[in-house]
Write a protein that binds this DNA or RNA. Structure first.
Lengths: 112, 112
DNA sequence: TATATATATATGAATATACTCATATATATT
DNA sequence: AATATATATGAGTATATTCATATATATATA
């Protein structure tokens, strides 16, 4: 009987990789944090991050393809929002780990 | 007075990106889940994943550089372990999101 | 209906990074 | 010397990023 270890299911690991890849970009991380505060249109994000609309549009596409952002048309504009707040929990948890790493490193540097 | 929004600190965002990048690879995700179950030597991981030692070693280096794995020499061998279980929490939370996405999609497909 | 606006999509080009494997060498330990 | 691992290198392949530009589509307004 082959043990169907959760950690070794290839298919879900590939999806998992796709989610992580979506987060592996500073611009997309910033977009997600912006959307955590309020829903925004593409141009709002483009201005907030001082980045061309086509570039933001590509990043949004990556996030949309992985269902990390949702869209809703409002008149001529498309409003972006977060369909699942847990992605912010994920990001915050990583930040907590990061902050601890930085503090641990600072402590080592100080003690030398 | 400039508001120092947590979400827009570039420096930490770059570190954040590096953590996410480290997770954005199926092999590394599998390595982390293996190490969540027990500490392992490089050759153990290499066998478990049926992947050359040099490839595993490169992946471990990526994880080590970001402090996502810790090392401890035991005789001639080097034992790898997880210094911070929260990285598994991060991965599990992503899986939960993924599973909900998959189920939502299945529900839509069924209803058509 | 015609026009303007907002966004998506497509394409090309330049650049960069990452992955894999194979192979070789260096280093630490027994 | 033998073992375990790290490190380095090269090659092939693949993917991602950015920007610029152009076009397509949906909607609102005149």
């Amino acid at each position: 009987m082959k043990k169907n270890t959760k950690s070794l299911e290839l298919e879900i690991n590939l999806l998992h990789e796709r989610i992580c890849s979506a987060l592996a970009d500073t611009t997309r991380i910033m977009i997600l944090y912006l959307l955590a505060e309020k829903d925004m249109f593409v141009n709002d994000i483009s201005e907030a991050l001082d980045t061309p609309q086509s570039t933001i549009s590509r990043h949004l596409r990556v996030l949309r393809e992985r269902n990390l952002v949702a869209t809703e048309r409002q008149g001529t504009a498309v409003l972006y929002s977060l369909p699942d707040d847990r992605i912010i929990q994920v990001l915050d948890l990583m930040r907590a780990i990061l902050n601890d790493q930085i503090q641990a490193e600072a402590a080592i540097t100080k003690s030398i």
